[in-house]
C-alpha cells in the first residue's frame, strides 16, 4: 500500500513513522510530480496558512483536490482538517474545500490553551487526543461525528475523508492509523 503524506511543512514525519511501522509504503509529497500511484493521502498538522499557500505555489492543489473528490481515503489532522474544510468561520480563506463542515481555527486559543484529553472515538474506544493550537468543528453538515470533547466535535468522517482536530500521530496509539489503512485497502 502506497500512502502519500503532504510534506510541504509540518508534522509529516510522525505520521510516516507510524504508517511505516504498520507496513505501509510512504511517499513525501513536496511537489506536484510526487503525486502519483497513491492508495491513501495524509494531510498532517502544521500551519494551514503555510501549507495552503505552498500547495498552490507548487501546483499541487488541483491534483490533490481531484484525488480527494475521486474518493482517495484521506486522513487529515489539525491543519489538514482546515485544508479540507468547506468553510472556516474565523478566516475568509478556504483551501481544498472537499469536506462539507465549518471549522474554527485556533479555537482553543494560543499555545497555553493546548491540551491532552482521553475521550471516546467511535468504534475505537477511549483514545488520548492531543490538541495543539487546534481547531474544532462548528457545523458538521452531512458528515458523521466520530469524536466530541467537551461538547465540541473534534473528529468527523465524510465518505473517504477523515477529519481530526487533534493529533493521533503523537503518543503511542496507532489505532486511528490502522483504521485509516483499512479504508485504504478496501
Amino acid at each position: 500500500m502506497r500512502i502519500g503524506i503532504l510534506a510541504v511543512q509540518g508534522a509529516f514525519a510522525l505520521h510516516k513513522e507510524i504508517l511505516e511501522d504498520l507496513g505501509a509504503e510512504c511517499v513525501e509529497l513536496r511537489q506536484a510530480s510526487d503525486i502519483h500511484n497513491l492508495d491513501g493521502l495524509v494531510l498532517p498538522g502544521g500551519e494551514s496558512t503555510v501549507q495552503g499557500k505552498l500547495i498552490r505555489e507548487l501546483q499541487m492543489y488541483d491534483k490533490l483536490k481531484e484525488l480527494i473528490d475521486n474518493g482517495i481515503p484521506t486522513l487529515a489532522t489539525c491543519a489538514g482538517l482546515i485544508l479540507l474544510a468547506k468553510e472556516i468561520s474565523n478566516d475568509e480563506n478556504v483551501y481544498l474545500a472537499t469536506l462539507p463542515v465549518t471549522v474554527k481555527r485556533n479555537a482553543y486559543g494560543r499555545q497555553l490553551g493546548s491540551f491532552n484529553k482521553v475521550d471516546m472515538f467511535k468504534d475505537i474506544g477511549d483514545f488520548e487526543m492531543t490538541f495543539i493550537r487546534a481547531p474544532y468543528i462548528e457545523q458538521v453538515g452531512n458528515a458523521k461525528v466520530l469524536a466530541k470533547v467537551d461538547d465540541k466535535v473534534v473528529a468527523v468522517q465524510y465518505k473517504n475523508q477523515l477529519g481530526l482536530a487533534f493529533h493521533p500521530e503523537m503518543g503511542n496509539d496507532n489505532r486511528i492509523h490502522k483504521y485509516f489503512l483499512q479504508m485504504c485497502s478496501r
Binding site: Q9, G10, A11, F12, A13, I132, M170
Partner: peptide, 10 residues
C-alpha cells in the same frame, strides 16, 4: 515539543 513538530519544515 508537539508545537515544535508543527513548525517543522517551516
Amino acid at each position: 515539543r508537539g508545537l515544535a513538530h508543527m513548525l517543522k519544515g517551516g
